[in-house]
Design a protein around this nucleic acid. Structure first.
Length: 477
RNA sequence: CGGGGUGUGGCACAGCUUGGUAGUGCGCUUGGUUCGGGACCAAGAGGCCGCAGGUUCAAGUCCUGUCACUCCGACCA
């Protein structure tokens, strides 16, 4: 019932959805607004989610042979300027350091909006031979982009992310790396976060500044807008030529390296909120939930209740991240609070349970009460967490299916864009002109050209000329 | 950068039209009764009304200026 109300709200008014979102972000204790404009303070609970994301992704990066490094946060202007497309793409939103102490710097320093140039300079220094390749580096850091309008997690002037930067001997190897990392992201989204994603390529207009090809995993939010969850770029040898990154190959000739980069940011957290959240607040997939199980003692002043709660915590701690809330708030208060914070499972234990050797487990997503015996409570908790992730995935998939439309004519597309929110599948000729025209006429942008898409026609939905590819169009954050 | 809106205890606001003792709700403190879906009672603490001028016997309220924040139009993980 609560969900229905939400869906009505968000389809009727964007503003309500925005309010719902910012409410959750604050009430679930994820962030505070900072007095530094356009920046956010990530509170311990919000940061713990990010730490879990880091841990899970990092394990996948290590498993695919990547190493973590750290680069400076300042980029000399001359370095940034080396690759023309890149600097033009980022120039409007970089912050500059002009003074050191009271002295004006002879060369301005840019606060990194991304670190391609720094990695390139470093790679130019350390790569000499084919034996040095591939170089598979990743960096966890924050970057700064001077955005005009901001929203917590989705767009802030400083945000946390991870950026992988790799160098390869051949174009084929670089392409394989780009796709491998895209799949790493997709796997993380779908298995750990319960978020179904589209895997595909970005159009030239939407691709990263300086990239040869940009791949994306796109997730669809509650309100039918698309969120780019992760990106993976193949740079070809463009930067390598600009930065003179060459290696001596087996055949004793100098060759340019082929480069990739890929990243995900704290925006993911915004995506989780907007994919799984409901009217009662956040719903966290167990994999990233700081608290996976909260134990709420009922009538905790009564003999034995708190002790039973602590004993249960000690048992469950072996299979989950558990917290007992023994504060003197009323149980109803606690229920609401942990629902707001998205804790996947709530375990209630009170005098009645003590008598029955049982407890009550309530799942956050459907709020169904399970009366379970304490004998195999560990097993039940593990099962329910797995079931919860699966249920989140199913629900989000259903939402995506219901919000995916197909258009074969321009009028049809304009009509759908005006009335519905979601993906519109339509054929495209590949011309920028048509892409701009659709933005102008229907206010949609190309989100993704999925890898495994079935064509829905043979003519461009906009100009009617022979179509090259199927595009998922939509509105983005 | 163009158009609108708002500045009043920690938070959300009312009061301004028609000047006359600074208000409400939430939160906070203390004590008590409660506790299986956001409990209740009582007593408290906390505000140069964004800032600077002006009009007036008197300004949160009227006038002028100024600063800050915020929403909508072009770019972005």
């Amino acid at each position: 019932m609560a969900e229905k109300k939400l869906v009505e709200q968000i389809t009727s008014m964007d503003e309500d959805f925005a309010k719902w979102y910012t409410d959750i972000v604050k009430k679930a204790d994820l962030i505070d607004y900072s007095s530094v404009k356009g920046c956010m303070i990530i509170r311990p609970y919000g940061y713990a989610i990010w730490e879990n994301i880091q841990r899970l992704l990092d394990a996948r990066f290590k498993a695919t042979g990547h190493e973590n490094v750290y680069m400076p946060m300042f980029i000399p202007e001359s370095l940034l300027n080396k690759e023309k497309e890149h600097v033009e793409g980022f120039a409007p939103e970089v912050a500059w350091v002009t003074h050191g102490g009271s002295e004006r710097l002879t060369e301005r320093l840019c606060v990194r909006p991304t670190s391609e140039t720094l990695f390139c300079e470093h790679y130019a220094n350390i790569i000499r031979s084919y034996r040095d390749l591939p170089k598979l580096y990743n960096q966890w850091c924050s970057v700064v982009r001077w955005e005009k309008t901001t929203r917590p997690f989705l767009r802030s002037r400083e945000f946390l992310w991870q950026e992988g930067h790799t160098m390869h001997a051949t174009a084929e190897e670089a392409e394989a790396e780009t796709l491998q990392m895209l799949n790493v992201y997709a796997d993380f989204f779908e298995k750990d976060l319960g978020m179904p994603v589209l895997r595909g390529r970005k159009t030239d207009k939407e691709k990263f500044a300086g990239a040869k090809a940009t791949y994306t995993v796109e997730a669809l939010m509650h309100d039918g807008k698309a969120l780019q969850g992760g990106t993976s770029h193949n740079f070809g040898d463009g930067f390598a030529r600009a930065f003179d990154i060459q290696y001596l190959d087996r055949d004793n000739t100098l060759k340019y390296c082929h480069q990739t980069s890929w990243g995900v940011s704290t925006r993911i957290i915004g995506g989780i909120i907007m994919t799984h959240g409901d009217d009662s607040g956040l719903v966290l997939p167990p994999a990233v939930a700081p608290i996976q199980v909260v134990i709420v003692p009922v009538q905790q002043h009564k003999e034995g209740v708190l002790d039973a709660a602590y004993a249960l915590r000690d048992r469950l701690s072996k299979v989950a991240r558990v917290k007992v809330d023994d504060s003197d708030n009323s149980p109803g208060w606690k229920f609401a609070e942990y629902e707001m914070k998205g804790v996947p499972l709530r375990v209630e234990i009170g005098p009645r349970d003590l008598a029955n050797n049982s407890c009550v487990i309530v799942r956050r997503d459907n709020r169904e009460k399970l009366f379970v015996s304490l004998d195999d409570v560990e097993k039940t908790v593990t099962e329910q967490m797995e079931a919860l992730t699966l249920a989140l995935y199913e629900k989000a998939s259903k939402n995506r299916e219901e919000r995916t439309y197909t258009a074969t004519t321009l009028d049809e597309l304009i009509g759908i864009a005006a009335e519905k929110s979601g993906y519109i599948r339509a054929m495209w000729c590949g011309e920028l002109e048509c892409e701009l025209a659709l933005k102008e006429k229907a206010d949609v942008t190309s989100r993704c050209m999925p890898f495994d898409a079935e064509p829905v026609g043979d003519k461009c939905v906009c100009c009617g000329k022979p179509a090259k590819t199927l595009v998922y169009w939509g509105k983005a954050y």
